[in-house]
């Protein structure tokens, strides 16, 4: 099983940009643990920020993988920056826009903005700015070896790529 924290890919430009969305639902258990009611205040269900970062990592990771024809094993290696200015509540849609800064044999760096789309007005407002680093782990400096098959781009991520209307490598 793998956690997928994006629902659909809207745009995918080779080596340049990827846009995805994630609908925040009250049906997701994690929201009810974050944060439950206390004696002093009512429940405040919001999408945990680490999961929003994971959604951006999946968005940017697909862009990095796509730039290398999904041949490299692309692993999130560093969260360079993650600054949040709002909270994602049920009923809102999260939109991740990732852009490529650098891409090399060893890895890639990306930056992106995450927005909240208001369910009433359709307007987008800033939620976070997230800058990430990815490693192509078969080219890691330590010379470590990993399984030959690409265990990153398989199953759900590739199914989502196809369901969103983009061609998967398989």
């Amino acid at each position: 099983m793998r956690w997928i924290w994006i629902d659909r890919i809207l745009e995918l430009e080779r080596g340049r940009r990827c846009v995805t969305i994630k609908n925040v639902s009250a049906a997701e258990d994690v929201l009810h643990d974050h944060f439950p009611a206390t004696d002093n205040r009512p429940a405040m269900p919001v999408m945990p920020n680490p999961l929003i970062i994971e959604g951006m990592a999946q968005t940017a990771g697909i862009m990095v993988g796509h730039a290398g024809d999904f041949k490299e094993k692309v692993i999130l290696a560093k969260i360079t920056k993650a600054v949040f200015t709002d909270a994602a509540r049920p009923g809102y849609t999260i939109r991740h826009t990732a852009e490529m800064d650098n891409f090399s044999k060893a890895g890639a760096s990306t930056h992106g903005k995450t927005e909240l789309i208001d369910p009433n007005t359709g307007e987008a407002k800033p939620l976070a700015e997230i800058t990430l680093m990815f490693s192509h782990i078969d080219h890691n400096m330590a010379g470590l070896e990993f399984p030959e098959h690409n265990f990153v781009f398989t199953g759900q991520l590739m199914e989502m790529l196809e369901a969103s209307g983009f061609q998967s490598p398989g």
């Binding site: 090399s104 890895g107 680093m133």
Partner: peptide
């Protein structure tokens, strides 16, 4: 750490 060296390379290039 190891990934930081790649980050440094990218930033020096820019």
């Amino acid at each position: 750490e190891s990934i930081d060296y790649l980050d440094i390379v990218f930033r020096l290039e820019k």
